[in-house]
Structure formats: structure tokens, C-alpha cells
Nucleic acid binder design. Structure first.
Lengths: 247, 247
DNA sequence: CACATCCGGAGGATTCTCCTCCGCTTGGTA
DNA sequence: TACCAAGCGGAGGAGAATCCTCCGGATGTG
């Protein structure tokens, strides 16, 4: 699984949130992290409408604990999405900052993104969650910026082929994150994903002599992806239920 | 959808089956084909335990018609699997026979396999169906033979990298067949799958100068894939219900 | 050590899915 | 054309799965 534990905690350093909600007790926070982790995996494997009892069971907590922390399905999905997006943004920043070669940075980022299973976030994000949720949109954009920088730099350097764009990278990660349709043990499935990513990276390289295949259709930009989100109707059509203890 | 209609009909040319079951009436056969087609898509999109009423609705027939033809879920899954495997085998044969260059033959086969959504068959095949079903195993092997020939030939010719094998090709096709986690219109999703396959094909090429990435783990053979099927217990642990009208 | 916070699991209500039954329609044949 | 077996659709009861609340007991914190 790569990263071991400890969700990125937006509350860190604040005794209480602006709203005056006291910080969670230690065991409660631990359970919350386990729920997020379990929910991510369960949503990946069984889709965004998986049974919440499965999530609780996998997290090793009672179902009541889940409902106590996340009053409904959507607030759990939202929390999972925010958590994973934050982690992914962090990975992108690190890759960009620490890897001098832009293509290698992109490669590293993609491998890390696989470990984080960002692909899990997309279905939840794009099918069930309110696309008018500001925090969510912001988190997505924050994660996108460094990736776009890597792409642009690598293309300018000639190490990334020119006929791909952000949307392609994102979708490819999503594809590789999806669970294989066979009962592979988790470890094997992960190894295969990285293996197939390596294959793909060879196809993404910029050396013109490599690019024997011509890609059909135009490169898929971030904008193309965003255009998919149905036209944002008024700010908050249905008041989004926040998760408890972090409003 | 590529191929337009008319499922491959194992009954063709026989007025009645050995068992004495008369051939289906024309409208019944048409409905059967539509059901197979719809079932394939629904299984792909909602998993192997999708609601059978969805299948019937998408096929444009009543639920009773589905149950009349396929007494239970498994027999429908079985029929879908056999149908798709037969189509895929046919595509592989054609590619092998008509394309002189083995790598190009493989590429063509993979593109066609995408259109047929073989990826739909694998989850059904590997998770729900009895792996001791002779016809199913035979169909799979028939489809595998020409593909393995293409792989071996292309590798011998140096056009396909040596560190991949049948299992990789199969899994990559499965990955590309899986529905994207975003509400793309079907046509767009298909186009993207082909686009990403082209990318991948550039990564699969054999020119050693191309292969900058080293693949982790050993190449995945057909045997590796087969090893996943739980040890075949005695011939027929539970009598497999055949679909009606073709026993 | 005291108390507020947190936990787990049972269980009623609700929703979804399955699958059969039966009267009407349609394709094939004489 | 006319007959009739084969085929069709949709309603609806049975059963299963899921949701989500309630409350006595355990546990972290000051």
C-alpha cells in the first residue's frame, strides 16, 4: 500500500475548528483514519454504492462508529475524495520539487498515484458528489497544477510526446487503479499495475522515432475533463452535509 | 460497436439439436441476441451481479423473455462468455491469417478485442462461473492459441519486447475494456480506449532502444493466469444449468 | 479518579431484486 | 388465408440486502 497510515489532517495545529468543535479524541481520530482508508478500498472494489457495513467491517469498527462520524454516504465519499486528493497533490509537489528530469518526475508521480489509488476518487467524485462543492473543486485544481507543470516541462524538453495532455495522464492513472477483473491477491494486483505503468511510460516517451502509433483524436486536456462535469447549477442546489467534527 | 449484429450461432446449419430441441423461432432468436448483447454491456458496467431486469430493459424485451431463455443468472453469464470468446477467437484467427507482420496482427487483434469488450467476459468468467465447465475452458483455449502464436512470432522477429507474455496482453486488454469512472458517452469512451491502446502499443514494441523502463516481476504467462482458477474439483460439482433451447 | 466522549451490535423499516404466472400476440406452415 | 404452437410482456408476492437508530458499556483525558 505504500503510505502506511496517518491521513493528512487538515486540522493539524488547531485545538478547535473555527466552528468551535473540539478536536477528536485520539481513538476517534484513529478510527476515522481507518474508516477513510477502508472506504477508499471498498469504493474502489464495489463501486460508490457499496454497503457501508462492509466499510465498517473492513475498518474494524462498528457500523455505528461510521454513522457517528459520517452522517450519510455522501459525507463519507466527500471525505475520502478530499483525503486522497490532498495526498496526491502532495506527491505531485514532491515529485516536481525533487526530481530534476520532468519526465522522471511525471513517472514517479504516476507510480505514487497508483499506490494512493486516486482512481478510486474519480468515480466517487464524478458520479455521486456535488460538483458544486468548492472545497472539492479546489482540491482537484491544487492537485492538477504541479502535474500540468511536469507535462509542459517534459514536452518542452522533448521527453514526453506532444500528442498527450493532462486528461490522458489522469485517465491512464484511473485505468491502472481499477481493480483487475480477477481474484488476484492485492499485492499481485499492485505489482501488475506498476508493471503495466512501466510499459505505458515507454509509450509516452517523446523520442519521435519511438512514436510509431499515431493517436486518434486530439489530446485530452484538463479542460476537456472539467467540461464533463454537468453545468454547475446555482451554488448549492442541495446543502451538502458536512462530516461531523470538521465544519 | 464494430460488428453489427447476429451472434455467432453454434446451431447454424442444424434444424434441431441432438437433444431434439427445435430451432428457435426468428423473433426468439433475435431477442436472444439482443439479450446477449445487452447482458454483456450491463455486466461490464454494473458487475456480474447486475440486476437482470436492467438487462431485459436494455435489450428491449420483457423480463419473462430473459428468464424463458436463460433460467438463471449463471446460464446467461455462461452464454455471454461463450459468445464473446467465440467472437474474439475469430478475430484472432483473422488477424493472424491476414496480417503478415506479427506485431501488427497483435495490434489489430487488440483493437478488435476492445470493440468486443472481452474485458467483460473475464470478470464473469473468473468470478462467477464454474471453472470446471468444459465448453468454457475449451473456448478460452481456442481463443488463446492464435494470440500466443502472434506473440511468439513477433518476439522472434524482434518487434515485440521480450519481457511480456500472454497474461500481460490479456490483462491490458481487460484494463482498457473497463468502463471509465466518468460519465463519458459511450462513443467517447471507446475512442479513448483505442487512443490509450495506441500509446501502450508504442510501449510494447521490441526495439531495445525503446525499452527504457525495466518491467518489475516476470512476464505473465497464460499458465499464470490459469493458475488463478481454483483447483478444478471433480468434473461437475454442481450440474451447470444450460440455457434453454441448446442442450 | 471522575466524567465526557466514544464504541459496538442488535433489530425494525425500507428498498431492491428475483422469478413465476397467465392472458394476449406473432411467426410459420398447410 | 387460417390455424396453432411458440413466444411475449408485465404485474406482484416472496425473500434478501441495506439502512440507520438506540442504548448500555468501555475508554481516553484532565
Amino acid at each position: 500500500m505504500g503510505t502506511t497510515s496517518a491521513a493528512i489532517d487538515q486540522r493539524r495545529g488547531q485545538a478547535t475548528r473555527p466552528g468551535g468543535v473540539p478536536r477528536l479524541r485520539a481513538d476517534a481520530r484513529r478510527n476515522r483514519d481507518q474508516l477513510l482508508h477502508a472506504a477508499r478500498d471498498v469504493f474502489v472494489e464495489h463501486g460508490p454504492s457499496a454497503a457501508l457495513e462492509d466499510v465498517a467491517r473492513r475498518a474494524g469498527v462498528g457500523i455505528a462508529t461510521l454513522y457517528r462520524r459520517f452522517p450519510d454516504r455522501q459525507s463519507l465519499q466527500r471525505a475520502v475524495a478530499l483525503d486522497v486528493l490532498a495526498r496526491v497533490a502532495q506527491e505531485a509537489d514532491h515529485a516536481l520539487a525533487e526530481e530534476p528530469d520532468a519526465f522522471l518526475a511525471l513517472a514517479r508521480y504516476m507510480h505514487r498515484a497508483l499506490d494512493l489509488r486516486v482512481g478510486a476518487v474519480m468515480p466517487v467524485l464524478m458520479s455521486e458528489l456535488s460538483l458544486t462543492d468548492e472545497a472539492l473543486l479546489r482540491a482537484r485544481d491544487v492537485a492538477a497544477v504541479p502535474v500540468q507543470a511536469m507535462i509542459a516541462t517534459a514536452q518542452a524538453a522533448g521527453t514526453l510526446r506532444l500528442d498527450v495532455d493532462f486528461g490522458d495522464i489522469g485517465l491512464l492513472i484511473a485505468r491502472l487503479c481499477q481493480p483487475l477483473p480477477a481474484p488476484f491477491p492485492r499485492a499481485v494486483a499492485d505489482a501488475l499495475a506498476h508493471r503495466h505503468l512501466a510499459l505505458l511510460l515507454d509509450g509516452l516517451r517523446g523520442d519521435p522515432s519511438r512514436s510509431a502509433e499515431t493517436l486518434s483524436g486530439p489530446a485530452l486536456t484538463l479542460g476537456d475533463l472539467q467540461a464533463l462535469t454537468p453545468s454547475p447549477s446555482p451554488p448549492a442546489p442541495s446543502p451538502v452535509p458536512r462530516e461531523r467534527g470538521s465544519e
